[in-house]
């Protein structure tokens, strides 16, 4: 990982990047201007992370939390025999380790699936927000709670759904999350994951993932070319996946 020589100027050049987190938190509740300004100021520096590089390592004790500004990242754990389980996929606007502010030592790592730009928010800044802006702190808490809710969904899918249903569920989740930060066009979105990476997220062999994607295509639910997924039959895909977006808490209400 290297520090962006221009510090946070990438954010001044591209204010849209900083607005993704604002947009994400606005899904949960209204944000007064003052809270928006706090969010706009909280990134102390930015960094560029190469594809395949860890942006947070297991065992680290981070003193800052990382927001993904561009690119895709994944939380993962490695087993002793080298097998990898991806436990979450992160898209721009996500904090990849906001929980490290509270839990201190990382029990998992976060890898850049694509080249990424990240914004670092010092834990001191988050502590300050928790003391001076309790409503904003609660919204950051919602973000941590939604991460946990997504893990529950993954456990249910992994434990009780067929590979086909589980894969459909992951695609539904990614679509709704990317849509919520404006990163979809109609029913089309980027999924820059290889079949091996999907297998690590789904707990499946690459061959089985390939087989399942062929079925989703054959059944007219999706098309997948290069990195672009198009959902051809959204109600059909949701029904197959038994997908209910409640776990994403995408309702504006007082929190």
């Amino acid at each position: 990982m290297r520090q962006d020589a221009s510090g946070t100027s990438i954010l001044r050049r591209n204010p849209i990047l900083n607005s993704l987190l604002i947009r994400k938190l606005e899904q949960y509740d209204r944000l007064p201007d003052e809270e928006r300004q706090v969010l706009e100021r909280m990134v102390a520096r930015t960094a560029v992370v190469s594809k395949g590089e860890d942006m947070v390592r297991e065992g680290d004790r981070p003193t800052e939390s990382t927001i993904l500004l561009t690119g895709f990242a994944a939380r993962y754990n490695l087993l002793r025999d080298g097998k990898r389980q991806i436990t979450a996929i992160h898209v721009p606007g996500d904090f990849v380790d906001l929980h490290s502010f509270l839990t201190k030592k990382m029990d998992h790592a976060v890898v850049a699936i694509t080249p990424c730009t990240t914004g670092m928010v010092p834990h001191e800044t988050i502590r300050g927000i928790s003391e001076t802006h309790p409503h904003l702190a609660r919204l950051l808490g919602v973000s941590i709670a939604v991460d946990a809710a997504a893990h529950r969904q993954w456990i249910v899918a992994m434990g009780r759904q067929s590979a086909l249903e589980h894969t459909a569920h992951l695609l539904c989740e990614l679509f709704v999350r990317l849509q919520s930060v404006g990163l979809t066009t109609d029913h089309s979105f980027k999924v820059p994951l290889t079949q091996a990476e999907l297998g690590d997220a789904l707990g499946l062999s690459t061959v089985h993932v390939n087989r399942v994607l062929q079925d989703l295509r054959r059944d007219g639910l999706i098309t997948w070319r290069g990195e672009t997924v198009v959902i051809e039959d959204w109600p059909g895909l949701q029904q197959l996946a038994d997908f209910d977006p409640t776990f994403l808490s995408l309702e504006v209400e007082p929190r």
Partner: peptide
């Protein structure tokens, strides 16, 4: 890989 895929499917 073939054995794992066959078992999963």
């Amino acid at each position: 890989e073939a054995a794992r895929a066959a078992a999963e499917i």
